[in-house]
């Protein structure tokens, strides 16, 4: 984030589309997914329209696995223009739609859809971005960001993966933007805050494209110039490992930093036995405070 002010020569955008069929807006009306997908594709093409060197990847995140929808591995599809649309944009649209159908068809029938594994897709996105940076000429200034479009809720189960991904993104100066279609996502909001991205929960799915274009199309250096929704407050409380409850005061194992809501003699994560009886160094002071 050091050279935020200088406009980049090229910007890389990875869009992660959550296609999990158990999202509420899909279960209510499966047709909406097509509408949302069209909006995302139009948004993706608008990104490519900004600069000739801009790079794009679209990752579909289904409940059984995540896969690249664009670019397709190996040779690109052979696409000819069918109307006045720019050839590259037609290619994006065709590839994404075709590969998404394949992805959905490959879902195991007997399994019940679980939660969307966005952390895995994020990890893929980061690998893609670092590949783009490796292959570009070293003189090129590249800004990168990842946009997640999802209607799922986030659960603490993927917490470790999420955090690892967020910290890697922060280190590599990749912004993580989140566009939530349904619920408030506190974990992903933390990710936006850590990496300096934007978090937006859209009030309505109609006009999704407008929300995307207004808020998420400007890249990092351009966002400073525009009036965009604020960061809001982020809940940074830790969840204890034992009950997954958010704590304001908790106990932390000095060896492995696991969080517990109650004092226990043995750490369940690293199996360290704690010294009992020895007064904790901060206790006496605390008592003084209470008096």
């Amino acid at each position: 984030m050091a050279d935020d002010e200088i406009p980049s020569d090229s910007s890389t955008l990875v869009i992660i589309v959550d296609t999990n069929p158990n999202q509420r807006y899909i279960t209510e009306d499966p047709k909406i997914l097509t509408g949302c997908l069209d909006a995302v594709i139009a948004f993706a093409n608008s990104h490519l329209m900004q600069k000739s060197r801009n790079e794009l990847a679209v990752i579909g995140c289904h409940f059984h696995k995540s896969e690249y929808l664009y670019p397709s591995p190996g040779k690109p599809l052979d696409v000819r223009q069918i109307d006045g649309q720019y050839e590259l944009f037609t290619l994006v649209e065709k590839t994404v739609k075709m590969r998404l159908v394949n992805l959905i068809k490959s879902q195991p029938q007997e399994e019940k859809p679980g939660e969307s594994l966005l952390a895995g897709a994020l990890a893929m996105g980061l690998c893609f971005i670092s590949k783009v940076r490796r292959e570009a000429s070293p003189a090129l200034k590249i800004s990168s960001r990842i946009l997640i479009v999802t209607g799922s809720s986030d659960t603490a189960a993927q917490y470790i993966n999420y955090m690892n991904v967020f910290f890697t993104a922060q280190k590599q100066q990749v912004l993580i933007d989140v566009c939530s279609l349904d619920k408030h996502l506190s974990l992903l909001q933390q990710g936006c805050d850590i990496t300096g991205g934007l978090y937006l929960k859209v009030p309505t799915l109609e006009g999704l494209l407008q929300y995307l274009l207004w808020v998420f199309l400007p890249e990092g250096s351009e966002r400073k110039q525009l009036v965009l929704p604020g960061r809001g407050r982020v809940d940074y409380r830790a969840a204890c490992f034992c009950h997954r409850e958010l704590l304001t005061i908790g106990y932390v194992c000095s060896v492995c930093l696991s969080v517990f809501c109650k004092f226990s003699p043995i750490c369940t994560t690293c199996h360290t036995v704690f010294k009992i009886g020895g007064p904790l160094p901060i206790k006496p002071k605390k008592k003084k405070m209470k008096v």
Binding site: A42, N45, S46, M49, Q81, I82, D83, G84, Q85, Y86, F89, T90, E93
Partner: peptide, 10 residues
């Protein structure tokens, strides 16, 4: 047309 399609091919 260029962005979303429609119109005549180039």
């Amino acid at each position: 047309v260029a962005l979303l399609g429609g119109g005549r091919p180039w």
